[in-house]
Simulated scan of single mutants.
Amino acid sequence: MNKAVFLDRDGVINEVLSKRVKFVNKPSDIHYLKKVPDAIRILNNAGFKVFVVTNQGGVGLGYLTEAGLERIHSTMKKDLKAQGGIIEEFASCTHKPYEGCACRKPEAGMIISLAENHNIDLSLSYMAGDREADIEAGRKAGCTTILIAEENEGNLADHHFPSLFEAAVFLSSKEQGE
């Protein structure tokens, strides 16, 4: 079985609600956070398959089309691959917020589906996100959780780092030590 790192998108990989961009609704809105391509490459080199699990309620609300979301994810996949980082697949919940689906985080549907389709051992895998819903989804799926944020108020996650890069360095060194 494989091991994986499941990443939230907005706030972990790219900027959102920043001075440059409010929401990512087209490829030109993508602004990667510092050292994200390096982080993904480090995770790949440590033997992790990397997946993105993202709530994209803007599609259900009509702010973005499915085709537009696919263009954004294709651009991200291409950009990151050009810098040596491989994202295996993007999984998106495009339902409206509060629609009650099993895929929208904090539910674990996207993670579990990816694990089944890619032969992932969730007990050896991690979910990294910047919000409580990401951490809760990871826990429900049986992953070790990583909060990407300046502070870990209430000790939400198993691990806490201010950036994906620092989390990747930690996971890489942990894998080398095992």
Rank of each mutant, 00 (worst) to 15 (best):
M1V: 13
M1K: 12
N2I: 12
K3V: 11
K3G: 08
K3A: 11
V5A: 04
V5G: 11
V5K: 00
F6Y: 14
L7A: 02
L7D: 03
D8L: 02
D10C: 03
G11M: 03
V12I: 10
V12H: 00
V12A: 01
I13K: 00
V16Y: 11
V16F: 12
V16A: 13
L17K: 15
L17Y: 12
S18H: 02
K19Q: 05
R20M: 07
R20N: 15
R20W: 03
V21C: 05
K22F: 07
K22E: 09
F23G: 02
V24Y: 02
V24R: 00
N25M: 14
K26D: 05
K26N: 07
K26M: 04
S28V: 08
D29Q: 04
D29E: 09
L33M: 06
L33I: 03
L33V: 02
V36H: 00
V36Y: 00
P37S: 08
P37C: 10
A39Y: 01
I40K: 06
I40D: 07
R41M: 12
R41Y: 04
L43E: 08
N44W: 03
N44E: 08
N45I: 04
N45M: 11
N45C: 10
A46F: 09
A46N: 12
A46C: 11
V50M: 09
V50R: 00
F51D: 09
V52A: 06
G57C: 07
G57N: 06
G58K: 05
V59N: 09
G60K: 04
L61M: 12
L61C: 04
L61I: 09
G62S: 12
L64C: 04
T65L: 07
E66D: 15
R71Y: 05
R71A: 13
R71V: 01
T75R: 06
M76P: 04
K77I: 09
K81H: 10
K81P: 02
A82R: 11
A82G: 09
G84Y: 09
G85V: 08
I86Q: 14
I87G: 05
F90Q: 12
A91L: 15
S92Q: 08
C93P: 14
T94A: 10
T94K: 10
H95T: 05
K96L: 08
E99N: 10
A102N: 11
C103P: 01
G109E: 06
I111M: 07
I111L: 15
S113H: 10
S113A: 13
L114V: 06
A115P: 10
E116C: 04
N119M: 06
D121N: 15
Y126A: 01
G129N: 02
G129C: 03
D130C: 05
R131I: 03
E132V: 13
A133Y: 06
D134F: 07
I135Y: 01
I135V: 15
G138Y: 03
G138I: 03
R139P: 08
R139H: 14
K140R: 15
K140M: 06
A141R: 06
A141H: 10
C143A: 13
T144C: 10
T145Q: 09
L147M: 14
I148P: 10
I148R: 00
E150H: 13
E150G: 12
N152E: 13
E153Y: 11
E153I: 15
E153N: 14
E153C: 08
L156R: 11
P162K: 07
E166I: 00
A167C: 13
L171E: 02
S172N: 13
S173N: 15
K174L: 14
K174Q: 13
K174R: 14
E175C: 10
E175G: 04
Q176D: 14
Q176C: 05
Q176T: 13
